[in-house]
Write a protein that binds this DNA or RNA. Structure first.
Lengths: 110, 110
DNA sequence: CATTATACCTAGTTCTCATAGGCATAGCCC
DNA sequence: GGGCTATGCCTATGAGAACTAGGTATAATG
């Protein structure tokens, strides 16, 4: 509960978006989200890795072992066609949801 | 999984906001969220009522039985001082999180 | 009188996240 | 060489929250 619990329902969207630009390994996905958000999106490894496995089981991602630039062993993930379609769906769903929440929040107070 | 699962982490914020303008009963909270969002925010009763009870246990809400305009028995909830403080916290947290997610989504693609 | 909408409730399932460990290797400093 | 940190992966367990799928009761409507 330290960070979010807001992740539920958006974590897979975020991961898909991270990988849409090209393959990345899991650790790099977590680092990218954290750094590109100034620390707001801080995904615990205990949430990140299970999510990646889950998404691979669902056919949204595919993976292969390889090496990082510094010669370390790492598992690289890429978005499958199904994953690409899901990314667009989730994108729309998020936009719709966020707009609705903002609408309620900004409602003029009686 | 039919509707959202995006609610996790925002449902309490939405409820607090609904009640910030004055007391409402549970059923009316659900209806208000659904109608004011064009159906996007459709909270199941199995999520709504437990959330209200939970928030009352936490001291964010207080309740009292009363009657609706049409003479029906209903439990009315109002926001406590703690609930008011929480509303502002959650508001900030949501704004920060939503901005971060939008930032990742809109990142220029390689 | 039967059906619908209102208005409340909860037990059980399922899913996801966080906690809290574990393993292995590369680079750094002492 | 020895210890520490960062990288990179993993999972078992627990907690928490939403959904499913029921239930109750009453007022209005056909």
């Amino acid at each position: 509960m330290s960070g979010s619990d807001l992740f539920t329902g958006t974590l897979e969207l975020l991961i898909l978006r991270c990988l849409a630009g090209g393959p990345r390994h899991g650790y790099a996905v977590g680092r990218f989200l954290r750094e590109s958000s100034g620390g707001v999106l801080d995904v615990e490894e205990g949430a990140l890795y299970p999510a990646l496995h889950r998404m691979e089981r669902k056919g949204l991602l595919a993976s292969s072992w390889g090496k990082t630039e510094t010669g370390r062993r790492a598992k690289f993930y890429n978005v499958t066609p199904d994953g690409g379609a899901r990314l667009e769906e989730e994108r729309v769903r998020w936009a719709e949801y966020a707009r609705a929440v903002d609408g309620v929040l900004q409602e003029s107070e009686g």
